[in-house]
Design a protein around this nucleic acid. Structure first.
Lengths: 193, 193
DNA sequence: CCGTCCGGAGAACGAGCGTTCTCCCTTACC
DNA sequence: GGTAAGGGAGAACGCTCGTTCTCCGGACGG
């Protein structure tokens, strides 16, 4: 087995276990068992558990944002793209094994004691906010709206994780529609539209 | 020192440490050092760490909801009371040592492995949702609105915890006002008001 | 066929921690 | 004053886990 394949298998196992059980609840032995990569190789690839956690969060950040963007791309209308974010959330929440947002969970677990985790969580949320700001800008809408949509999306992730998935994304989407309409009425660039 | 005072001191220490650092990062020795209550007494009061965690979350749930309700009570207008929730969030976020929502953080840390923590988090969020539903009902507004406000409040807590406090509560309040106006326009009980 | 190197399996080590135990001191009662 | 009960300090125990080490087998070069 070559280096790259082993790395992928380790990160696959890490993602499944860290996301599903929490970071501290998963030992390096668990990663080894699930990935089939020996401890020696594991430590050649990632010198410490902390590095592995960092790599897990980084890779998941890229794939999470890519998946979101790919879904949003399927919609051409700038305002529809904003709503599409919440459609995608609904789809994500319904995936088997959904257990809330990996960064919110990691931050709750280790934000106070691990600079790595705190930084990764901040970077991810900043990137998500920037993405929403891009969407609202493309629709000629304010950055304020993006901030409000961020709150709705974060609230939906948390609530779906803790209280369960039923209806949460739809609620968030309905609220997003209202905020979007309200912002469109006051749209700075084309108020008459 | 009598039993009750020792219990209070232990719970005070537990709250400060568990909330500030996370549950797994705090040992029973840390609780003992900060509270000044010996290990023997500590285990007489709480048979296991799990019980202590449960008591911490229960007591904090009561005081958190009491503090919120006390602030909301100061406002007589039913719609003003709804907005007052977000005023109180702003005040809470600004407290020194604010580190997000204790239940969201605990759930992220232990929701997957501890039934105690998962249950406490669900109970707390259910109680908060019920409270918001009471406020919207008092204003003659729909339960749907309460669900949307819950998402905003949860999103604000998470975002304030991870990205920092600046402006988050004000954003949430602005969004809440818009949703409230929109719901008031469609108010089922007194649509003309 | 023999030696050498690489990687795997898992034992070993050391630290941290939940929980219990030991020892000693204080206090209260006869 | 003697004694028993209770509580405090902290050592001890057993377990988990991150990390490293040891040993062995198998592949490859001479």
């Amino acid at each position: 087995m070559d280096q790259g394949a082993a790395r992928d298998q380790v990160l696959d196992a890490a993602e499944e276990l860290f996301y599903g059980r929490g970071i501290q609840a998963v030992g390096m032995d668990d990663i080894r068992s699930l990935s089939g990569v020996s401890l020696k190789r594991l430590y050649q690839l990632f010198a410490t558990k902390d590095r592995l956690v960092e790599a897990y969060l980084e890779r998941r950040d890229l794939s999470w944002r890519r998946r979101l963007a790919e879904h949003v791309e399927t919609c051409a209308d700038p305002e529809g793209r904003i709503i599409a974010v919440f459609d995608w959330l609904e789809r994500w929440f319904a995936e088997p094994g959904f257990r809330g947002c990996a960064w919110i969970n990691s931050f709750g677990e280790l934000g106070a004691t691990s600079a790595t985790v705190a930084t990764q969580a901040r970077l991810h949320k900043l990137a998500f906010r920037r993405y929403l700001e891009g969407l609202t800008a493309d629709a000629g809408l304010s950055r304020e709206l993006a901030g409000q949509l961020l709150l709705l999306a974060e609230g939906a992730m948390v609530t779906a994780g803790i209280l369960g998935v039923t209806g949460t994304a739809a609620q968030a989407r309905a609220a997003a529609r209202l905020l979007l309409e309200s912002a469109a009425r006051a749209r700075p660039t084309s108020p008459a539209e």
